[in-house]
Design a binder for these strands. Structure first.
Length: 299
DNA sequence: CGCATACAACGTCACGGAAG
DNA sequence: CTTCCGTGACGTTGTATGCG
C-alpha cells in the first residue's frame, strides 16, 4: 500500500471508529455510549490526546493490511464497514418520531436563525457574483442584495441592502441604501428604470453595473470579473479562483451549520438520556412496589 | 503576572452520498 | 458522470482557568 493510500486508509478507519460510537448512541445504551463518544470527541479535538487514538488506528490498519493481502475482506463487507451514517438531521428526526418530547430539526429554522446576526434577513441567494476586488454580491429572490468581503468571517461579512423609494436621486430611480454602519455614513445606489447604476461613496469601492431583470438574464449583474466568455488562460485562472472562493465560502457556512446541528443533536440525546433515566427509575420503583404487594409476608 | 493546559469555535480539506 | 451538500478530521486561534 502506498504512503498516500495508507494515510487515507487510516483516516477512514478513524472515521469509522467515531461513527461507531455515535451509532451506538442511536440504538441501545445511550447513557454509556454518550460519555464514551464525548471523551472520544475530546480526544480528537485536542492534538495531544488524539495521538493514542491514531496509534490505535494505525494498529488496526496494520492488521487489516495483512488481512487485505490475503484477500479476506471482500468488497461488499468493506463497503458496508465504510458506509456513512445518516446526517444529524435525519437521526434526530428519527429520534423525534420515537420520543414525542424530543424536538425535531426543521429544514429551515427561522426563529433560531433569527438569533444569529444578519442571518435573519438573509434570503436564499438566486445569484452570487464576485467583484474584481473579491467581494461577493448575492441577490436574493426578494430583491435583497448582500455584499460579503472575502476576508470577513462568513455570514458576519454579509451586509444587507434595503430597497427604498425616495426623492433625491434621479426620478423613477430606486435607492438601494447601504444598511451597514460605517464611519463614512451610508452609501446609496441608484436604480434608473431598466438599468441600475451603483455609485460608490468611497474611492476603493468597486464599481458595479447592475442590469434590470430580463428574460434572458434575470437579475444579472455585469461586472469586471463576470464569468462570461473566458478565453485567455488568465481568465480561466480567475474563473477557477472565483469558483474556489465560492466553494470555500459555501463550505464555511455548511461547516457552521453542521456544527450547529451536531450540538443540537447531542443536546437532544442528552435530554433523551435524562427522560429515560427518570422513566427507568419510575419503573424500578413500581416494580419494587408490586413485589412488596404480591409477595406473601412470612413471619 | 506569566505560563501551561483545556476547551470551543472556526476554516479548510477530503470524502461519500444524493440529485440532476 | 458531474455537481453540490453534509460531515469527519485536522490544524489554528482565542479565551478561560489553574498553578507556581
Amino acid at each position: 500500500m502506498s504512503k498516500c493510500a495508507r494515510k487515507k486508509y487510516i483516516k477512514t478507519n478513524l472515521r469509522q471508529m467515531t461513527m461507531e460510537t455515535v451509532e451506538s448512541q442511536h440504538d441501545g445504551n445511550i447513557t454509556a455510549s454518550l460519555t464514551e463518544s464525548k471523551s472520544a470527541h475530546m480526544q480528537t479535538q485536542t492534538g495531544q490526546n488524539s495521538i493514542p487514538a491514531l496509534a490505535q488506528v494505525a494498529t488496526i490498519a496494520e492488521t487489516d493490511e495483512s488481512a487485505e493481502s490475503e484477500g479476506v475482506i471482500d468488497s461488499h463487507k468493506r463497503r458496508e464497514i465504510l458506509s456513512r451514517r445518516p446526517s444529524y438531521r435525519k437521526i434526530l428526526n428519527e429520534l423525534s418520531s420515537d420520543v414525542p418530547g424530543v424536538p425535531k430539526i426543521e429544514e429551515e429554522k427561522s426563529e433560531e436563525e433569527g438569533t444569529l446576526p444578519n442571518i435573519a434577513t438573509m434570503a436564499v441567494p438566486t445569484s452570487i457574483y464576485q467583484t474584481s476586488t473579491g467581494q461577493y454580491i448575492a441577490i436574493a429572490q426578494g430583491g435583497t442584495i448582500q455584499i460579503s468581503n472575502p476576508g470577513s468571517d462568513g455570514v458576519q461579512g454579509l451586509q444587507a441592502l434595503t430597497m427604498t423609494n425616495s426623492g433625491a436621486p434621479p426620478p423613477g430611480a430606486t435607492i438601494v441604501q447601504y444598511a451597514a454602519q460605517s464611519a463614512d455614513g451610508t452609501q446609496q445606489f441608484f436604480a434608473l428604470g431598466s438599468q441600475v447604476v451603483v455609485q460608490a461613496a468611497t474611492g476603493d469601492m468597486p464599481t458595479y453595473q447592475i442590469r434590470a431583470p430580463t428574460a434572458a438574464l434575470p437579475q444579472g449583474v455585469v461586472m469586471a470579473a463576470s464569468p462570461g466568455s473566458l478565453h485567455s488562460p488568465q481568465q480561466l485562472a480567475e474563473e477557477a479562483t472565483r469558483k474556489r472562493e465560492l466553494r470555500l465560502m459555501k463550505n464555511r457556512e455548511a461547516a457552521k451549520e453542521c456544527r450547529r446541528r451536531k450540538k443540537e443533536y447531542v443536546k437532544c440525546l442528552e435530554s433523551r438520556v435524562a427522560v429515560l433515566e427518570v422513566q427507568n427509575k419510575k419503573l424500578r420503583e413500581e416494580l419494587e412496589t408490586l413485589k412488596d404487594v404480591c409477595s406473601p409476608k412470612t413471619d
